[in-house]
Nucleic acid binder design. Sequence first.
RNA 1: CGGGAAGUAGCUCAGCCAGGUUAGAGUGCACGGUUCGGGACCGUGAGGUCGGGAGUUCGAAUCUCCCCUUCCCGACCA
Length: 484
Amino acid sequence: MAAERSVKQITSKGDDFDRWYVDVVRRAELADYTPVKGCMVIRPYGYALWERTRDALDGMIKRTGHENMYFPLLIPESYLTKEAQHVEGFAPEVFWVTQGGDRVLEERLAIRPTSETIICSLYADWIHSWRDLPVLINQWCNVARWEKRTRLFLRTAEFLWQEGHTFHATDDEAAAEVETMLDCYRELSEEWLAIPVIKGRKTESEKFAGARYTLSIEAMMSDGWALQSGTSHHLGQNFTTAYGISYSDRENTRQHPFQTSWGLSTRIIGGLIMAHGDDAGLVIPPRVAPIQVVVVPITHSNDEDAARLVEEACIRLEREAATEVRLRVDRREGMRPGEKFAHWELRGVPLRITVGAKDLADGNVTLVRRVDGEQSAVALEGLGSRLQGLLDEAQKVTRARAQRLLDERSVDVGSLEELVAAFAEQPVFASGPFCNRPECEVTVKGAVHAVTVRNLRADRTPDGAPCIACGQPAGHVALIARAY
RNA sequence: CGGGAAGUAGCUCAGCCAGGUUAGAGUGCACGGUUCGGGACCGUGAGGUCGGGAGUUCGAAUCUCCCCUUCCCGACCA
């Protein structure tokens, strides 16, 4: 049955994945294009999804000891340009404000592409002593980057994110922070968004501009492509030196603190869509679903008694579920049940309860799980209190399905030939021993169309195997994939 | 930013090559009715500066030029 549930308005996933993605985003009313080039509008349903994701991550950020604050949107050019690599990396994508009202500004202002520079400039005045460390802060904000190509949620000129920034007395403490926050991203992705990820370290060519190193989580989309879903950077003393941040340690010696930054953006919503969605539309994991349960009453205009019983059952569900579950009864008139089913499937609501006279005669309602279409007749009695458990189950099934996809499309390779063979049929996640020299990265990229080294896996070691590109002893296992 | 495609009703598109009454279809929308366990049907109605600008012409959705936007493939990137 599930296979026949095609949706009128959206392209089939198998026919054209990119069109499918855009169709789902727009038809499910998550987001849309705007008259502003490169900028999207996030519509209420999409924003609700972001809010749930954001709140989950915000809880983790606070749990790990960070506080939220807010920095200016505009950054003076002289502040932006102090860290050489950073400027070089971001300069091509900065928006510049050159005028205020009718006055040309003496110094251009950048619209923040990220806030390390303004934050360092301010903290240079606020950090004086080892007692001032660590500084553990975060901000939720918008940033702007002049991107050449727009993809809703995945790449827009303006996007929403959080950026965490910390300063530490020791290198090790900063390194631990980078790991801690990457693990928060992993937890958000796996436990909330039901997307398994692979943690690892970025290669030199892929790391954040100005960082000593960058860690990332990489998720597999259902077409086998990778999506970098969160990054955590160890900035060493690069910025603190450039921006003159120093403090007196316990021995009264001047020191530059060690710094980290880490970010996760609305891009993750794109990942959620591409990881779980199907030909009927979105599939939203219950923990972040704006609406977790939709109730569709089946009423007959020529049978008032039945209609009354159906409405009573709906009211009962609303009352019993109200406190713990986000449930909505779809009472829209003049719309046939099938149309409502399609409507909510497109929007990815995890559970649907159909309430009709036929089932009610036996004290039952029909329950359908979005992720796999599993359908069952369940007793109305006590259902409200069982919903949370059913949602937890749906969350698990969604996660397991994504894990299965990742497992099925992951391949270990021991040579370039095997790498080429791995991608012959379809995009995969290939893992192979890698020496991490820039020349070898170029070789790997050139071996298969559009692949990149996503990261050096944190969970694997090469065990003395030779690098797939040069044959020298490999120190890492590289995750190689095509990426969004 | 390079290569390709496309912009006509909310959406999907036809009409354009061979310029000519009042620009069409399906779907969606509004109202009425029959219906109602997978996008049902009948009727009525609203809805368009044909992406924008300039030009050619008696006359432009249609021909010419410029611009804008979107999609796809690259390069760049969260």
